[in-house]
Design a protein around this nucleic acid. Structure first.
Lengths: 228, 228
DNA sequence: TACAATGTATGATATTTGTCATAGATAAAA
DNA sequence: TTTTATCTATGACAAATATCATACATTGTA
């Protein structure tokens, strides 16, 4: 079984501030799990009793609306930590975390996390920073959802996806999403998302290779995202 | 000058976890200020060097879009604390805080806050809880902005406003907003907001008395907010 | 391989929402 | 008080977006 002390993924998240002893403690108590594509790591409304640290794999965080529609709030990948918000606020889980491909995840029990928060101010501060940045991102999203037309939001989302997931060896955005998932990210009907993607392809701003999307003209896409 | 130890407003926020000595320290270093109606307490993009604690008055938190439109993200009132997100994430202020009526506010320097975070784990935890809840609220907003039609969002917002600000002695929601501000909250054109308010009045769900809004049939409003 | 299920694409049309124009009401200022 | 500016209200119309229908492509699976 792997060891937290040697795990490279922790460099990218709040766990980097932990002392050797704290890492040892986490390592002893942690469990590792595999979430298969399509399975839930977290489920909206459930209680949670620990922190999840994603080692690899990609996923989506979603919220089910009263009308039954899925809204994708954000995407996740290796290095991201999940569940700290619920642990801290002592609320139920607010979002579903669903694997877009097989994920490897470590689970650290709540007790260890809360103990470490009280002992290690830097860990505590890093968690706060993480949530603070998420809050800032969320506020930006609200504003854009409320004010920007669908076309602009689609352009915005494509740029965001490339930033998060990078590109593969054919320069395509390195994540496989259905058109419905893209629609659920920008908050529109699937058909509208498909139509707008087709338009962007016709205008030679992006290329569509099956489900893969390649950004051809990023500055044009950026302009569209800003309403030009 | 008032004293933090005796201030009743702190009961409603993270400051309630402070020790007598910490309150004394805050009291010695704090300054009080008056923000007149329409003035900014925080300005998007500015640096911040402390925490604000609202004693009384009402305000709005806004974000200016790339297209120049104002989006209202949330409302604030006595008991709310501001600026902790930016202090913690070491980012610039993300939202404007603008007074809807005269506000009295206390300012506590950043140094005292960071010092207390490191010394008092409960204060630290309470700040995290506050941000965590805000993040949860924000995620809910994203979903609703993205998926619900304008009419539903207006109904939702009216219920939210009554929850936040309560009602005056004539049972009207106890805050004065222009129609434009309502439109900027739900993310629509001012004319659309006006039209939908008129419809709700015609259907006897709300009453409009000048700028004041009275909810007459809350369950009907709740149904509308859920798409029925 | 062949079948079923799901995903993608596009046209036609309805609905929602925004924009522009205009008029009256209210509030602020001279 | 009178004037001016801002806010509210509503109609007419345009633009954006959703919905429904249908066809084809792709994927998973018996």
């Amino acid at each position: 079984m792997s060891n937290c002390r040697q795990c490279i993924i922790k460099r990218f998240n709040a766990l980097k501030t932990l002392t050797q002893e704290e890492l040892e403690k986490f390592s002893d108590h942690k469990t590792t799990l595999v979430i298969k594509k399509g399975e839930n790591l977290l489920t909206e409304g459930n209680a949670i009793n620990g922190l999840y640290c994603i080692r690899d794999g990609k996923g989506k965080m979603t919220k089910l609306n009263t009308n039954g529609k899925e809204q994708i709030i954000k995407f996740i990948k290796g290095g991201d930590i999940l569940g700290h918000r619920s642990i801290l606020s002592e609320e139920l889980v607010g979002l579903n975390a669903i694997a877009l491909e097989d994920m490897h995840v470590c689970f650290i029990p709540k007790g260890d996390i809360l103990e470490t928060i009280k002992e290690n101010a830097n860990f505590s501060l890093d968690l706060m920073r993480n949530i603070s940045q998420q809050l800032n991102d969320a506020n930006t999203s609200i504003s854009q959802m409320a004010q920007k037309p669908v076309k602009d939001r689609l352009a915005e989302t494509l740029i965001y996806l490339e930033e998060i997931f990078g590109v593969d060896n054919e320069a395509c955005i390195d994540v496989i999403l259905t058109r419905e998932e893209i629609a659920n990210t920008i908050g529109t009907a699937t058909e509208s998302a498909i139509r707008l993607l087709s338009n962007l392809k016709k205008d030679r701003v992006i290329d569509l290779i099956g489900k893969k999307i390649k950004i051809i003209n990023k500055s044009a896409l950026k302009n569209i995202s800003e309403g030009y």
